[in-house]
Amino acid sequence: MSPLPFARRRLLVTTGGFVAASLVRPALAQSQWDVLRELLFENRPVQDGTGLIELETPTRAHDAALVEVAVKALVPQTPERYIRAIHLLIDRNPAPRAAVFKLTPATGSASITTRIRVNEYTPVRAVAETDDGALFMVERFVKASGGCSAPASKDKEAAYARLGKMKLLEPERFRTGEPNELRLLISHPQYSGMQIDQLTRNWIPADHLETIRITWNGEPLVEVEADISLSEDPLLGFHLQPEGPGELRVEAADIKGRRFVQSWQLGLGS
């Protein structure tokens, strides 16, 4: 019957940098979020993000290694007022900061979609950072476990054979002057450092994307700082509000120093 998406909690709990941090100060009985907030944002206030962004996650994930999450921006991106970053955080993952999406007004919409690994039942948070540096948070609780150590789905050779291959899913109709949703897949095994090689019985060293830079006609559009909590073959859904046709260019780099570059001409012929 089914593969069991269960955690190796005891094992993993000791490996995360975040947990180590929380152990330093048990007497304060801080919540995990308090510790995480201090690590990432120091003493900047984090306000309620309701009305600015929404976080969409499944309540219960069917595959802990592949949980699709979306952050919906409820206000448009304009040069005068925009969300300059969305921090996607998973409190109880060994590496709680799944990704930071840096966004420009050229997106038209700060809404993003991605897929994450969830290691145990945990709050998932999206923190929007507006252009003036203010922070706004929304959160959802996700029930899933074992996503970080789940066996890699393919053998290593097969995973590396497709390494760096990209696929861009374009909207049916490319519209100028309004946000178009684009979805980008980048083939990468995203080894978390917590998976075992089926043949050699050794831990597979971590190997994952570190940055994804997307430009539109040479201007920055979206930049992602990625980590092991992004699923194998990362998905990045983002927006582009073009004035006309142009070139979308993606440059991704992983922690081993590999670079993957591809570009697409968009908006011609429409």
Binding site: L4, F6, R8, L11, G146, P151, I196, Q198, L199, R201
Partner: peptide
């Protein structure tokens, strides 16, 4: 031929889950 590796890979996880 791939069974032993698959078993070893998952046994700890499976056993912990099954104990529960």
């Amino acid at each position: 031929a791939r069974l032993e590796a698959a078993l070893l890979d998952r046994f700890t996880t499976y056993r912990a889950a099954m104990e529960r």
